[in-house]
Amino acid sequence: MKKIIAIAVGALLASGTGAALAQQDAKSLATGVCAACHGPEGHSISPVFPRLAGQQAAYIVLQLDAFRSHARGDPNAQAYMWGMASQLSDATMKALGDYYAAQKPAHEKPEYPDLLAEGKKIYTEGIPVQNVPACASCHGPKAEGAGAFPRLAGQHTDYLVAQLQGFQSGLRSNAPIMLGVVKTLSPEQMKAAATYAASR
């Protein structure tokens, strides 16, 4: 608890205290710092901040690394995470990923229930005429994600929509596959797919 506020964990690690401390401190870091936006155990309140509970560890590490290297540059990533991730070591990132992956995922009600049926179709079958593949093919039938492909189930619907918009506008460009997938999606289709995926 001693270092709970100080995010100088990265500096500590650099001074040679090793990966064991990273593991031990991931929880302090998560509860003392990350929780300010991402909520206790990764259950955030505001859809500006993604829920991290149950997220794929590999995906979290990839994103933290992308924040640190500025490869992910959507407005909120710049405003919050560039600073946050700047002093994190690889070991700390891995420990944070493991910590959040081990938390119980949240449940999200269908945000736009009218679009649920359309969303299911997009998620499971894709939109062949628009060259949109099925989301399920990477994110899994239950939207649980796999490795570098993030969990979508239990995420804030509006956060997912914002990411899809970010991929389409190029604001968030660190996911080459998604940049292709979203090219032809309409705003309505984004909402539909996000509603279905988030409510799994």
Partner: peptide, 14 residues
């Protein structure tokens, strides 16, 4: 939190 959240390289001591 006393203005302490920090992401700068630090001069640190232990």
């Amino acid at each position: 939190n006393a203005y302490t959240v920090d992401n700068l390289p630090q001069v640190s001591g232990m």
